[in-house]
Amino acid sequence: MTNVDFSVNGKPVSVAIDNEDTPLLDVLRNELGLMGTRFGCGLEQCGCCMVLIDGAPEKCCAKPVSSIAGKNVTTIEGLGTQDAPHPLQQAFIDEQAGQCGYCLSGILISAKALLAANPSPTRAEIALALDGNICRCGSHNRILRAVEKAAAVMRGA
């Protein structure tokens, strides 16, 4: 049993694990009860499990939890709440951007990272930033509109 210390959504956590290769995703979901980060492939291909690690978007389904000791993890639960939504979340609701919604946690995280780096992305830049996230239902254009809208709100435009 090893302890790994890191922080999630600004709060320090310490998890005891048998297997140091345990993916961060399993720890978030099964140890910390943060179910918003979804399992999609376990292969770092689909983006359902996207989180921010020290601000950078990363897929966490195959990332050993031991590798993030001392780092800061932000999950979808760290964005906003229904009472106090992040501008991205509000824009996704306004645009009704989603169908089954299974991909949305990861997409919101990717979008957050994009807007932090580039507050005024073009639609093509948004699309490229989301190419690591798969949406199977075909809500792409709504999602792109929502990110554009959130960017405008966050710029105060």
């Binding site: 979901r29 943060l34 179910m35 918003g36 980060t37 979804r38 399992f39 999950t75 979808i76 639960e77 964005l79 906003g80 709440t81 229904q82 939504p85 979340q89 996704f92 609701i93 009704q96 989603g98 089954c100 919604g101 299974y102 949305l104 946690s105 919101l108």
Partner: peptide, 19 residues
């Protein structure tokens, strides 16, 4: 009409069977 199922998916709630 805004979809009743969508907010839970946008806020990362445990809405799926997987959760």
């Amino acid at each position: 009409s805004a979809r009743s199922d969508l907010p839970g998916k946008i806020f990362g709630d445990d809405v799926f069977i997987h959760d």
